[in-house]
Design a protein around this nucleic acid. Structure first.
Length: 588
RNA sequence: GGCCCCGUGGUGUAGCGGCCUAACAUGUCACCCUGUCAAGGUGAAGAUCGGCAGUUCGAAUCUGCUCGGGGUCGCCA
């Protein structure tokens, strides 16, 4: 029989008079000498326990106990008198009067507060994560993640998806991110890799005929961390047979709409999710993951100032560049300091400067004297600027304009509070190029992954202009965060080989690295497509969580270290020798 | 690898050349206290200011290096 029959946090006025057995942690203790109040905490919440000297044994135990000790209490639930109600507590209408109080475990004073939400040094929190997670707010995100994941599973089960686990010890295919390697003892000198994603495996499951597969897959990439990126993360990995991009997008859109409606009702800003073409997206937002919670799209003012003699514009055009503007409504009166700040932001993206025109009662612009009145009017008209608006302009190479104006737009979005935290702006981005040229390496590379399919009408371009081939690729973006993406795959060996050849893989290398999937495509591969959706990023975007650590039960530091276990760590020499390895001398 | 920021009792902060024999809050410990709920009162303990080197008559404070942490760019098919 369990030591408890009731959760502290579940107690309500309806339990008045009931005899209950509770167990939990001392959250707070108020010892009046005579009466002792203990706030007892368990996984469901906190309830007040009142100990009077009338029960000397229980009273003594309570007197001895300290914060975070573990107690078992048998007692009677009692309604509180009117003047002692505590409306701040969910259980504040009642309290528990113990008949007995047993100390199940004593506890050291914790290294940081568990009963207050104070900012504690990250490393300390991570090192004592098992204490950090006692904080109800911290535990709540982990439970919330469970609920979201459970929702996803049940949703997909109902649609007849089969959940299948794939190996975490696979073959290294060094492409893109660095692999984590695992040395093999059975064959010294050889290595497994941890999967960066189960991409090839899920395609093989389609070849195997499962038709609808998913799993919540751990993915490993040995790259530097960011606030929303760590070495190991979980993705909803899903693949379907006999689909076109629309089918996969429809499924994911329905699933994500259902998730949003359940967990953040009414928050979706645009329905159905807007579709942005990659080229158009880059032209308007300078990034392939735009935050659509607010406007401030770029306007090309090339037509307005194409013949301008103003050197900045003329030079940019002469060098094949462009000029684009953002209209900031009502900000013509921005202070000099704020404009300098914006200019600095633009420079961080590579722009040489930031031109601006404030359409106040009097024109406010250091560049006005270089422009004709017609040109200024053309800028005003093309940007749709009204009286009181500020127009900022960058003229440079397209890549620099995109980066600079993206930085400016993003900065203004934060500065003016345009990123409404209560809103979910989903958007699809499609129409990505299949390949991009890497000048350093002198080869084409897949923009997403080498298995993405392409549109049949682009087939001739594979020979004549590979960069113009459009992939059957789709990314889902939420509030400026890429929360997932996928594609309909190449399912014919010749096409797959052709793409790999463009990526500069010799036939031998193709067979060595991708032989399994290439061979499999020769045994009747169905048309297939799928997605990989980041679970942590979904959680963060959905609930406005600032750091990926908050949705991870046992996170690592951004250095990739685990301060709790002290991993990674050295191992016994014997272990290394058994693996047929020898350590090189430490680099000087 | 580049750049920016941070490191002071258990925790969170203040101090930014001498007034520091390092302050405040909270926690901890002891005693008092029968209606508190961030309980209250009285008292006590607790830091050589991340480390090393330097500048200076004098360094928590200035400089350099280093270690650790956070962010960002590169990187992340």
């Amino acid at each position: 029989m369990m030591l408890k029959d009731t959760y502290c946090g579940d107690l309500r006025a309806a339990h008045d008079g009931q005899r209950v057995r509770l167990a939990g942690w001392v959250h707070r203790r108020r010892d009046h000498g005579g009466l002792i109040f203990i706030d007892l905490r368990d996984s469901k919440g906190i309830v007040q326990v009142v100990l009077s000297p009338n029960e000397p044994a229980a009273h003594a135990a309570a007197h001895r106990s300290r914060i975070e000790w573990v107690l078992a209490i048998e007692g009677v639930v009692r309604r509180r008198s009117a003047e002692t109600l505590n409306p701040k507590m969910e259980t504040g209408e009642i309290e528990v009067v113990p008949l007995s109080c047993t100390v199940l475990a004593e506890a050291q004073t914790p290294p940081f507060y568990i009963n207050e939400s104070a900012d504690v040094e990250e490393q300390l929190r991570v090192k004592f994560r098992y204490l950090d997670l006692r904080r109800p707010e911290a535990a709540a995100w982990i439970r919330k993640r469970h609920e979201v994941v459970r929702f996803i599973r049940e949703y997909l089960y109902a649609l007849d998806f089969t959940e299948i686990e794939t190996p975490t010890l696979i073959k290294s295919t060094p492409e893109g991110a660095r692999d984590f390697l695992v040395p093999s003892r059975m064959r010294p000198g050889t290595f497994f890799a941890l999967p960066q994603s189960p991409q090839i495996l899920k395609q093989l499951l389609m070849v195997a005929g499962f038709e609808k597969y998913f799993q919540l897959a751990r993915c490993y990439r040995d790259e530097d961390f960011r606030a929303n990126r760590v070495a190991e993360h979980t993705q909803l990995d899903l693949e379907m047979s006999f689909v076109e991009p629309e089918d996969v997008m429809a499924l994911i859109e329905a699933l994500y709409t259902a998730i949003a409606e359940k967990f953040v009702p009414g928050a979706i800003q645009w329905q159905p999710f807007p579709r942005l073409d990659y080229q158009d997206c880059m032209a308007r937002y300078g990034i392939d993951r735009p935050d659509l919670r607010y406007g401030l799209a770029f306007v090309d003012i090339g037509a307005a100032v194409g013949d301008s003699s103003f050197q900045v514009f003329a030079n940019a055009f002469a060098a094949g560049g462009e000029a684009k503007a953002i209209r900031i409504p009502g900000k013509a009166d921005m202070t000099r300091k704020e404009i300098d700040e914006l200019t600095e932001v633009a420079r961080s993206g590579g722009a040489k400067g930031l031109a601006y025109i404030g359409f106040a009662a009097e024109l406010r612009s250091p560049i006005a004297k270089f422009l004709t009145p017609d040109e200024i009017e053309a800028i005003r008209a093309s940007t749709g600027a009204q009286q009181g608006d500020l127009v900022v302009i960058v003229a440079d190479q397209p890549a620099i304009v995109a980066r600079s104006l993206f930085a400016v737009r993003d900065f203004i979005g934060d500065k003016l509070g345009l990123k409404d935290p209560s809103v979910l702006a989903f958007t699809w981005v499609t129409g990505f190029p299949l390949l991009e040229w890497h000048p350093d390496e002198g080869r084409w590379d897949a923009t997403h992954n080498p298995f993405s399919g392409f549109h049949e009408e682009d087939r001739p371009l594979l020979d004549s202009d590979p960069g113009a081939v459009i992939a059957k690729q789709y990314d889902l973006v939420l509030n400026g965060v890429e929360i997932g993406g996928g594609s309909v795959r190449i399912t014919n060996r010749a096409d797959q080989a052709k793409v790999l050849t463009l990526m500069n893989h010799s036939p031998e290398a193709q067979q060595e690295r991708f032989g399994v999937i290439l061979d499999a495509l020769e045994y009747g591969a169905p048309p297939m497509g799928g997605v990989g959706m980041g679970i942590e990023r979904l959680m963060m975007a959905l609930f406005n969580i600032g750091h990926i650590r908050d949705v991870t039960a046992f996170p690592k530091m951004s250095s990739g270290l685990d301060p709790m276990f002290g991993a990674p760590s050295e191992v016994d020499l014997a272990q290394i020798e058994e693996l047929g390895l020898r350590l090189a001398p430490a680099p000087a």
